[in-house]
């Protein structure tokens, strides 16, 4: 009886690795979102360039929304684990989706340079990089480890 209760609790709880990754992703998305916002209004720091933070209200908004989804999941951990789990899963899916859009944008930048017969294709591609592109690593990891199950359930349903 005690064992069955224990297994029930475990099946409803969010794995600590998922919690950890969601927390890190949430904080980083928030930080990058704020930095993008500051860059948009003209305030820049020396390290912004190396992180490809070039400003843009769209990028800032998307980063902040993704951060909000992750952090809401973290905040709801104590209240409702199923709901927290759902927020983290959707956070990973959004991170993946926005990351794919960023990757396609960068590839398109390179393709445009190539069609225009310009030489600095790689430089052209790097100009289009945004934090959404490298932050996709969280979406990819989260999808492969956890969110894929939700995706599979939707396919099955």
């Amino acid at each position: 009886m005690a064992n069955s209760n224990k297994s029930k609790t475990n099946s409803n709880s969010v794995p600590s690795a998922k919690y950890g990754l969601g927390l890190i992703a949430g904080i980083l998305y928030l930080a990058f979102g704020i930095m993008q916002l500051t860059a948009t209004v003209g305030f820049t720091m020396p390290f912004y360039e190396s992180l490809y933070i070039t400003g843009g209200i769209f990028n800032a908004f998307v980063l902040l929304v993704t951060a909000a989804v992750f952090l809401t999941g973290i905040l709801r951990m104590n209240r409702n684990t199923a709901e927290a789990d759902a927020f983290l899963d959707v956070g990973f899916l959004l991170s993946l989706a926005f990351g794919i859009v960023a990757i396609l944008g960068t590839l398109a930048g390179g393709l445009d340079m190539w069609i225009g017969e310009e030489e600095e294709i790689v430089e052209g591609m790097l100009e289009t990089v945004t934090p959404l592109l490298y932050m996709v690593v969280f979406g990819f990891l989260g999808y492969c480890l956890w969110a894929k199950d939700l995706f599979r359930k939707v396919v099955a349903a």
Binding site: F58, V62, V65, A68, L104, G105, A108, T128
Partner: peptide, 24 residues
């Protein structure tokens, strides 16, 4: 609270993709 911001973020991404990926 998050339903509308998520919707707007997805629409943002859709229009960004429309412009950037369509360019070449």
């Amino acid at each position: 609270w998050l339903g509308i911001p998520i919707f707007l973020a997805l629409m943002c991404a859709a229009f960004d993709l429309t412009f950037t990926f369509g360019a070449p």
